[in-house]
């Protein structure tokens, strides 16, 4: 910019960057390359990896269990993201039109702060077939107890419901933050023109929130695809394979059967899906920034 000689901070810069670059090389770059290599080998952690070409992938694509886990994961994502986004949108717009209370927002955030393991345990207790609060409640209404975690049709909706409970408040606050950027005078004007709340929601909130909503949707989908903790604590992939999600499949292949190469190949398939979603997210980030600027 200035007329004097251009600054060159290269000596200082590499010191600023050294810790991050070491961390990146050792725990991101190197393992990523190693992961690709493992997926092309037969490796059990006890032997030296031996190159087998694309054999792991061929086996994977013929593996009924792999496709089942993909299907189960997709079912989970649909249940979880669908319910969570709709509920969060509802709560965010209620808050947006009613209150700016920080205490209320902090309360909504509470489940997000709690480890998924704790949340899994908590709901195992609330939904326990014999003693759980929910089944006691059903009993007082004269209904039969439900085996929420042990029944094949109930297990996945139950797990999805638990995580919807845990993440709806957080998602609602993200959407709410987006709604706060919508100029207030639009609502005032619409109100003077006699528009009702529902009409304002459809004509003002929803269209102007769209970039934020799309971004939140993609970010929560990326998280949703990686469901593991709740299932590891509650159903362990069962009953039968009703909650055998892809993360749990990879975990079992790697650390129960020690099929490291096979697990790495499955991890790459998941990484491709998530990488695609992240690429979409980054594009949206850029788009939404220029929209708001």
């Amino acid at each position: 910019m200035s007329a004097t000689k251009p600054r060159d901070d290269r000596r200082a810069a590499w010191w600023f960057l050294a810790p991050v670059l070491v961390g990146f090389a050792v725990f991101y770059g190197y393992p990523a390359a190693r992961g690709v290599w493992y997926s092309l080998t037969d490796y059990t952690m006890l032997n030296t990896p031996s190159y087998v070409g694309t054999e792991n992938y061929a086996k994977l694509f013929a593996d009924q269990k792999f496709w089942n886990s993909m299907l189960v994961t997709a079912w989970y994502v649909v249940l979880n993201i669908g319910s969570q986004t709709l509920l969060a949108l509802g709560i965010a717009s209620l808050m947006h039109r009613l209150t700016r209370s920080v205490v209320l927002r902090a309360t909504l955030l509470l489940p997000w702060l709690v480890p998924n393991v704790t949340i899994g345990l908590l709901w195992m207790w609330l939904l326990d077939t014999n003693l759980g609060f929910v089944n006691q409640l059903l009993h007082t209404f004269g209904m039969d107890p439900i085996g929420f975690f042990t029944d094949e049709t109930w297990a996945m909706p139950t797990v999805a419901g638990i995580n919807t409970w845990a993440y709806t408040g957080y998602t609602a606050l993200l959407l709410y933050a987006g709604m706060l950027q919508i100029p207030q005078y639009l609502y005032e004007g619409a109100s003077i023109d006699g528009a009702g709340e529902w009409r304002m929601f459809r004509r003002i909130t929803l269209p102007l929130l769209r970039p934020v909503l799309a971004l939140v949707l993609v970010v929560s989908m990326i998280g949703s695809f990686q469901i593991f903790d709740t299932i590891a604590v509650t159903t362990k992939g069962g009953p039968v394979a009703a909650t055998q999600v892809i993360y749990y499949f990879i975990y079992q292949q790697a650390f129960k059967y020690f099929h490291m190469g096979y697990a790495a190949a499955a991890a790459i398939c998941l990484a491709l899906i998530l990488g695609l979603l992240t690429a979409i997210q980054m594009r949206m980030l850029r788009a939404s920034r220029s929209d708001l600027a």
């Binding site: 670059l21 991101y28 770059g29 190197y30 190693r34 697990a263 991890a267």
Partner: peptide, 20 residues
């Protein structure tokens, strides 16, 4: 290059990092 790592999901680096 550093930001490209945002696209690498944790599970992918988890197995090699465990071995490392």
């Amino acid at each position: 290059i550093v930001i490209a790592a945002l696209m690498v999901p944790p599970i992918f680096t988890l197995l090699p990092n465990f071995i490392l």
